[in-house]
Write a protein that binds this DNA or RNA. Structure first.
Lengths: 331, 331
DNA sequence: CTGAAAGCGCTTACAG
DNA sequence: CTGAAAGCGCTTACAG
C-alpha cells in the first residue's frame, strides 16, 4: 500500500480513501492512485483490514453433514446470501459427533467469524452454552426438536408440514393410514394427527412405524411392518422422503400399485423424489428463504454491532402434489 | 491480552510466550498467567495473530457444488484433513458458473487463505491464470480433462478406472458390450477400450452412447439406445453411477434380468449404489486419500513458505465387485 | 480534499 | 527466563 502511495505521489491514507470510497477524493488523484494499483498489482491485505475494522467479513456455518440433499442445499443457499453481502463462508461439520462440534464451537469463539449460523439439532444442544460469551451474533436454523430460547431461531414449522400432509390425505378421502417415522420427527407426526383429528379421526399409535434408520432400506422395513399391521391401509405418510422411497419399493414388492392401491406422501421434497415412479408427493421446505432470513438476521446485527434480536421465525412449508397420491379405491 | 498480563503481573510478551509455548516460561509464572486467562475468559484474537504471523490458518476449497455424493464426500474429507492440521475451511462453490468462479478466485487472492484447493474441471480452466500471482500455494484435485501443468494436481487415474471396469467385464467373458458415457469422461472410455484391446477386441463408436444429462433419466435413455443398437449385448459400463442406475431401470423395463441377462458396472461408487437391487458393481475413487494428499502438499508448502512442488499425483481407483455383474449367459 | 498520528492485538527478534 | 520496542498493513478520527 505504501508502494502504491509513493508511486501515485500521495499518502497511504489517500489510497485507503480511494479504495473504500468513503471519503471523496479528487478525480485526478483517484485516477493516479488507481493507475498505481494496477501497475503494481496491488491487492489490499484483508487481514490487516480486519484487524483495523474488527470485521472479518466471514460467517461461520456449522452443519451436521454436507452429504444429503437437505444440508447440501442449505450450504449453497447460505453461501449465496452470504456472498451477496460480500461475505465469505467458513464451513464446519459436526458429523453428529458432539466432541467434534465442541471443538469447532470453541475454535470459532476466537473472533474468526463475524457471525455464526448453526443448523442441526440435538447433538449440539449440550455445547450451546459455550457460545454464551461469543462476541459475535449466533443464530440457529432448521432446528426441529427442543428449540432453545436463548438464541434466535429460523426454522420450519414442522408441525404445520405434518398437518399439510395429513390434510392432503384427508381431502383425498383417506381414513386408514400409517405413518413411517424417523426419530426426532415428533412434531411432523403431531401435525399429521391434528389434520385427522379435525375430522374426528385418530391416527393410533399402532399405525405409526418408526424406521430403524433414515435410509431406503429402513423405509422398506417400516412400510412392510405397516402393511402387516393393517393390510387395508390406503395411504402412508413418511416423515422423511428417503423413507417414502422405501415405501414405494415395498409397495411394488407387495403388489400394491401407487397411487391406485396406496397413496404415498413424503417430507422434505428432496430433488430425487421428482425422479421416482410415480413422482412423489411431498412437503417442500423453504430452504433458501430459511437461509436468507437467518443470514439477514445475523448480518443486520453485525451491521449495527448490536445483539441479534431474539426471535423465532417459523417458515411455512408447502405441499407439492405429484403423482403418488390419489383418492382411495373405496372412495 | 494486556489485561491478562496486568493481572498476572507480567508483560504481554510473556503471556504470548505462555500461549504459544515457543519460549520456555518459569512454571510459577506460567501458572499465574494461565489463572489470569481463565479468570478473564481471555481468548486470543486470531486476526491479530494472523496479521503478525502472516498466516490465517485457513485453507480455501473451491468446488463446483456441494450437492451430490462425490463432492460432498470431498468436502468432508478435506475438512477432516485440514482440521487435523489445525486449519479452518473456507468453502466456495462455482455452480459451474464461470463468472461466479472468477469472483471467488479474485476475492481469495487477497490473502484470506493460506492455501487453496480447487476441485472441478473445465469451467475453471479459463480463470486459472488469475491465480498465477497468488501469494499462497494452489493445488488442483479431481481434475479429469485437460489437466493443467502449471499447478500441482492430485487426481484419480481415470483411464485406469475405465480399464478396471473393462478388464472386469473381460474376465467375466463379455464381448458385446456398450458404454453409457457422460460428457468429459473420455479417459474412462479410453481405459475401458484398452482392456478390450488387450484381448484383441474393440469397442466400436456405435457401442458408445452419450447421455444427454448425468441423471437417472439420462441413463435410462442412453441404455435404451444401447439396447436398440445391439439387442444382443451382455454388459454395460456406465462412466457415472447415476447412469448405471438408469441402466438398471431400463433393463427392468425391457425385461432383462441383472446380472443374468445383462451385467451393469458403474463408476464412482456413490454410497447409494449399495442400495440398488442388485447392488451395483462400480469403480471406487479414493476420495479421502485424494483430499489428504492434496491438503498435505499444500500445507507442506505453507510450512516452509516455499512454492508447492509441481507434481501430478495419480491415485489408483479400485474395483468394487457387487452383484450386478456376472458371466454372460452364453459363456 | 489531503496529510500526520495513533491504534487494532498480536508476534518476533533483541536486550537484559 | 523476562521486559522494552518495533512492526504486521490497514482504518479511523483529527488537523490543515
Amino acid at each position: 500500500m505504501q508502494d502504491v502511495a509513493d508511486r501515485a505521489g500521495v499518502t497511504k491514507q489517500t489510497v485507503s480513501n480511494v479504495i473504500s470510497g468513503r471519503v471523496p477524493v479528487r478525480p485526478e488523484t483517484a485516477a493516479r492512485v488507481r493507475a498505481a494499483i494496477d501497475a503494481l498489482g496491488y491487492t489490499p491485505n484483508l487481514v490487516a483490514r480486519s484487524l483495523a475494522t474488527g470485521s472479518t467479513r466471514t460467517v461461520g456455518l456449522l452443519v451436521p453433514t454436507v452429504g444429503g440433499a437437505f444440508y447440501a442445499e442449505m450450504v449453497e443457499a447460505v453461501e449465496d446470501v452470504v456472498e451477496e453481502h460480500g461475505y465469505h463462508l467458513l464451513l464446519a461439520t459436526t458429523r453428529l459427533d458432539g466432541e467434534r462440534a465442541r471443538r469447532h464451537l470453541a475454535s470459532l469463539t476466537s473472533r474468526s467469524v463475524d457471525a455464526l449460523l448453526i443448523a442441526g439439532d440435538r447433538d449440539l444442544m449440550a455445547h450451546l452454552p459455550l457460545l454464551a460469551e461469543a462476541r459475535f451474533p449466533v443464530a440457529l436454523c432448521a432446528w426441529e426438536t427442543a428449540v432453545p430460547d436463548d438464541f434466535p431461531v429460523v426454522t420450519v414449522d414442522y408441525e404445520h408440514a405434518g398437518y399439510l400432509a395429513g390434510r392432503h390425505l384427508r381431502e383425498l378421502g383417506h381414513e386408514r393410514v400409517a405413518v413411517l417415522e424417523s426419530p426426532d420427527h415428533g412434531s411432523r407426526l403431531a401435525g399429521f394427527r391434528r389434520a385427522f383429528a379435525a375430522d374426528g379421526l385418530t391416527v393410533p399409535d399402532h399405525a405409526v412405524h418408526r424406521a430403524a434408520e433414515p435410509t431406503v432400506a429402513g423405509g422398506v422395513d417400516a412400510a412392510r411392518a405397516a402393511f402387516a399391521a393393517d393390510p387395508e391401509l390406503t395411504a402412508v405418510f413418511a416423515t422423511h422422503d428417503v423413507l417414502a422411497l422405501g415405501a414405494l419399493d415395498a409397495a411394488k414388492a407387495t403388489g400394491r400399485s401407487v397411487p391406485g392401491d396406496l397413496s404415498v406422501i413424503g417430507h422434505d421434497d428432496n430433488p430425487e423424489v421428482r425422479l421416482t415412479r410415480p413422482p412423489l408427493t411431498s412437503v417442500a421446505l423453504p430452504m433458501r428463504e430459511m437461509a436468507r432470513q437467518a443470514v439477514d438476521l445475523l448480518l443486520r446485527a453485525v451491521a449495527r454491532s448490536g445483539p441479534v434480536v431474539n426471535s423465532l421465525h417459523l417458515l411455512r412449508p408447502e405441499l407439492v402434489v405429484r403423482e403418488s397420491t390419489a383418492p382411495p379405491r373405496s372412495a
